[in-house]
Every structure is written in C-alpha cells, then in structure tokens.
Design a protein around this nucleic acid. Structure first.
Lengths: 349, 349
DNA sequence: TTGTACGCGTTATCAT
DNA sequence: ATGATAACGCGTACAA
C-alpha cells in the first residue's frame, strides 16, 4: 500500500505549548540578530569572536537545537538514508558499524530503513527517504533493477554497497570482488584434491534475471574456475524459505558432492545444520564454505571456512564516498576490496 | 562529539532546479485551491467527490509527494524513530519486523537509529530523532537511566521494549516476563536433577546499577528460584568483549557447573563454542540454556534450549501502543507476554 | 559586522 | 463546499 497520505487524527495531541526554543529565542537571549545566530551555527563568515561567544553561550544555556525540518526545507537536512534489505543478515550489521564510524565526527545522521527483502517495500522506502529531504542514500544489496537505481540517483546522491551494476555512472559503488572470491574458493577446494563441488545459491524470482547481485557474481566466479579446471558445474538453488530443506536434500543425496560452496554464511550454517542432523561428518564426509565471514563463522560448532570482506570497511568507504558526492563530486567512483579466504575446520583447515 | 551543528559546505551542490512538484503545482493543475488539495491529502471534511477526484488525478499525473520537512514544521512528520541499541543482536531483527508489520498499512514510516551499545550515542540519537520532529519513538533495550527516558517521553510519545522501569507512567512498555522466564529455566533444570546451575551474564558498568534491564530481571528470576529450591547461587559476569574468554574459563574450570544459564542466546552460543573447542560434551558433560530463542537456536550444531518470547509480537504491540499514544492516549500501558521454554538438545531435550 | 525581509511547502483558521 | 492567508523555523540576499 501507499503510505504517502495521511488519515485524519481522531484526537489531536494535546499541546501544552512549552514555548519552543528557536533561533529567534537564542538571538533575543544573546541580544543579536537571527542571521548572526544562523551564521554562527553554520560557521559562516562575518562573525566576531565576541558575538560568537555570546551566541554559543545562549545556545548552551537554552539548550537550543536547530529544527531539521526547517533546515530540510531550505537545503540540507543533515540526514542520510541507509536502505537495508535484510536486517537478519548479520553481515549487514558490520556495514552499518562502518557507516557509523565514518559519520560520527560529521554533522550527518544516518537513519535506517528496512525493506525485509521485499521489492515493493524497498521502493516505497526510497520514496520515504526522498520525501524526507535526506541529503544522501546508501543502498545495501538492493534488489531494485538498475534503471530504477539510476532514477533514484538522479534525485539524490547515492552510493550502492553489494551490487555490481555494469557500466553505470550516476552513482558510486562499494564492493568486494565477488567473482574473484568465487574463484578463490573453487581453486582452494580443488587444491585439496576435490572435484565434485556444488554451488548453493538463491533462486531468483522469474522476472528477475538480475546479473548485478553478489550471488550472481560469486556464481560466475565459481563457474569460471570450475570450467577452467575442467570440472563439472553443479548449481543448487533454493528460495529463502526453503533453504533448510534444500540443504538437507543436498547433504542426504546419494551422489553427495565433496564440497558445498554457499553464496553466504547464513546458508552455509544451514548446511552444517543439515549435516549435523544427518550424522554426515564435516569435513571428513563433506566440506562447507560460506561467504562474508560473519561473526558466527568462528564459533567452534560452525568453524566455517569463509570468504572475508570487511563489512566495516565497506561501510566506511560508502559513507566517505557519499559525503564526497554531497559536497559536489560528480564523477562516479567504484571502490573494490579484495576478498580473502579464511580457512577453518569446515574444510579441514 | 556533538553532531548538531554544521560545518560549511566546501562546494555547494549544483542545483539544476527541476521545478519541484508542490502542493501548489497540484492545485494549479487541478484548477483548485491549495487548501482544497491539502484537505484531500488529509482526508479532511468538506471536499466534494468531484473535487477529490480531480485532485487525485492531478496528484497521480504529476507524481506529487508531500514534503515531510514541510509537514514536520506544521505538525506531524509521519516518521517514527526506532532506537536499536545493538544491531548485531539478531533477536532485535524480529522486533523490527513486528514493528514493520503493524506500521505498513499506516502512513507512519519507521526509521532506525543504531547506537551500538554506546550510551553517548544513544543520547545523541534521541536528540537527532527529536530534532527531526519525529512523531514518536520506540526504544529497544535502552541503556539510558530511567529519569532520562522520562525526560524524553515528555517531549514525544514513547514506547520502550525490553526494559522494566519500575512505576513509571510517562511512557508505555512492552516486555516478556523476564523474571518468570528466569525462574522457569531454573525449575526446568532442577527438574532434570541438576543442582549446580550458574547464571552467565553481563557486567554492568560501575556507574550503572540498573535494575531495569532484562538481564537483571532474568537474574532475579534465577536467584529467586535457586533460593526457593535451596540451591547455591552462582553468577558469572563478563563484558561484551570478553565473553569468549569467560565462557572458556567457565567451561574449563575444575568445578564446572552442571548447567549454564545464559542471559541471552548470543552468549549461550559462545558457551557452546567453548565446550566444543575443549571437547566438553553437550549435554552429557554440561547443559546450556539461552534466552530469546533466536533463529540460530534451532540449527542442529547449536540445538540450544532457550526461552522464547516472540520478538515479532513485541514489535507489533509496541507499534500499536505508540500509535495510540500519538493519537492522544495519555494513560500508560504496560504490555507483557508470557515466555515459554523451548527445550532442545543442549539440555538433553 | 549586523539586521531585515522574504521564501521554502505545508497545515489550519477563518471567510466566503 | 471552497478558498485566501497566516503561521511554522531556518537560510540568505540585500540593505544598513
């Protein structure tokens, strides 16, 4: 549904009218003009030290805070939208921490919207962010088609994390090299003498042959390495709500693969669960590899070999690029980190 | 740092001035007055069907969207702040989903701030939310002292999830009965014939003898049941960044307890990790219990017995209560769900 | 260096 | 039923 428009309020909130402290209150208290206060607030030129001191004192004393709404109307709102598509994915938490790190010493406040993997929600969230005059937007692993992202980027500075849109120039991207990561996993497993390696990934919705997702790039890396090594490509797909069953089937099957390379850690943990449940030993009977190296990989009961990409670093870079864009940069920048394989017991490491 | 005030922009963003569609544009296009459009937007009284239809058509045609900033200046911003203290805690993701569920068919948009367990950040986030004229606030497991929360609640409608402030009346709360949950765990373990049960929880900062946290209530439940059963109380404390070591020490110790009851699932998973690593068998050598019943509990490698409280339900109720408050309710409401123990293999279940 | 006045997009009051 | 208009708090020309 469209949340844009408002129903009437049954009862209007009681307003005790506590005489809000505005820029005017401060000006009067400090005995100066409003514009003087405004200048102090924005570190603009043309304010004497004495004046500045007086104003600051009044601000402190009155506990004045500028209204973001009013600011938003005139120009910047000092708010940045972050669109998280899947808050259950703990890897995204690290990204968020990186964003917070970079933004902490700036006047920009990041605010999150959560779309729960729902395309419709994703779109309406972007609208909500635009409606709120936010100064910029960070998209984390968006499911929106490229043209739509470009539309959005036309309206406000945008940085995308975790998507590989080919040849776009309207926004910045921050990624790890998912193709390289996919290849690295296959090469490593093959180095262990393994040949029957299955890639376990997400089924895309029919209407969505999206080549830009990280899943797809990891898959491409897998396919490319397997092909190069002369091995048979084997890809197993499942939807989000059927991962457990699919993992079980995969592990229990007669011609069980020697190794399962999962598009992400969450899926790998499900595979470990299925194996544990069925009494299939890891790594003796089957090896499991994940991607993202999230916080659960190192728990001994998982001890999951995974591809590390520093989420924190991705978040930091995204925030940095976004601020650059807000401050006027127009040329696109695409930041890439090189992933590294972290070997643990799930592959005998 | 205080992020309230702004530094000057090095370069001002180029403004191609794409002639923004405002309420006025719509009014002109539809051939009516601005107030007419406004009324249509707010479903206010005094609009004929014909006028409404014309206005709606224009809105559609022009793809008009109201400016949240402008709305915020006059009254409601239709934005609700959600303050998450720990985005790594996957249980909170469920709460968020519940909030989204309830809010989806309303015009209110939830936006998250993440404080990463840092008190200072928590406070400045609340300020940021107030500055942005948000209509309401949901605090999830806040670390702020009660008086501060009450201060905040004076400024905007507030609902708190996951905290048990005694005898407060300025805001609503939504919780499960943590004391009951704590007792239930002890009773269950004792019913298994166990007597040496340790509670593994968070060290509070010195200045923070906060009786309101969920940890503390779970602890009280533990203590009360242990005492009632005539068993020795044994509490182990650790800080967030030393959980792994503490868990290891606990599991490796000579007088290892028969069972470890952890304040939350994340800690229980660490205990399982330590046990796995040290070759201590679960549940034969030691039993482990968590709290929250998060999504990782049911993975076979964890198979963690845990206390279930539906995060989704908590989120739904919180959102519902908040809207009621925004619409005028003044009497406080305290919602409580009864937790239930989910028995799994970590206790031999 | 300081002050005045206007506009940003919306809501709400008051006429018509 | 409809429309004119005064706020809301801030930024910014422009005037002093």
């Amino acid at each position: 549904m469209d949340n844009t428009f408002a129903p009437p309020l049954k009862k209007s909130r009681a307003k005790p009218a506590p005489a809000r402290v505005t820029i005017r209150t401060v000006a009067e208290d400090a005995g100066v003009s409003v514009s003087a206060v405004s200048k102090v607030l924005r570190n603009a030129y043309g304010v004497s030290d004495g004046l500045r001191a007086r104003v600051m004192a009044s601000i402190e004393k009155l506990d004045y805070r500028p209204s973001a709404s009013a600011r938003g109307m005139r120009g910047q709102s000092y708010t940045l939208g972050v669109l998280l598509t899947d808050i259950r994915n703990v890897f995204f938490a690290e990204i968020m921490e990186g964003i917070n790190d970079t933004l902490a010493p700036t006047p920009y406040q990041p605010l999150l919207g959560v779309s729960q993997l729902r395309r419709r929600v994703e779109r309406s969230l972007v609208d909500a962010i635009i409606d709120r005059q936010m100064d910029g937007l960070i998209l984390v692993a968006p499911r929106m088609p490229l043209p739509e992202i470009e539309d959005v980027a036309k309206r406000l500075p945008t940085v995308v994390i975790g998507s590989h849109p080919a040849g776009t120039s309207r926004f910045d991207t921050v990624n790890n090299d998912d193709i390289l990561g996919g290849e690295a996993v296959v090469d490593y497993l093959n180095g262990l003498g393994l040949r029957r390696i299955t890639f376990f990934t997400l089924t895309e919705p029919d209407d969505d042959d999206d080549e830009n997702t990280v899943m797809m790039h990891r898959e491409r890396g897998y396919v490319s390495a397997m092909t190069r090594l002369g091995l048979d490509v084997n890809i197993e797909r499942a939807a989000h709500d059927t991962v457990a069953e699919a993992a079980r089937r995969l592990v229990a099957s007669k011609d069980r693969p020697e190794a399962i390379f999962c598009w992400g850690d969450a899926w790998a943990l499900r595979v470990i669960s299925a194996a544990t449940d069925l009494g299939v030993r890891i790594p003796q009977d089957i090896r499991v590899v994940g991607y993202d190296n999230n916080q659960y990989c190192e728990l001994a009961q998982n001890s999951l070999t995974s591809v590390d990409q520093s989420g924190r670093e991705l978040g930091k870079q995204a925030a940095r690029l976004l601020i650059e864009r807000i401050e006027g940069r127009r040329e696109p920048y695409h930041f890439t980190v090189t992933p590294s394989l972290i070997v643990r017991n799930s592959t005998g490491g």
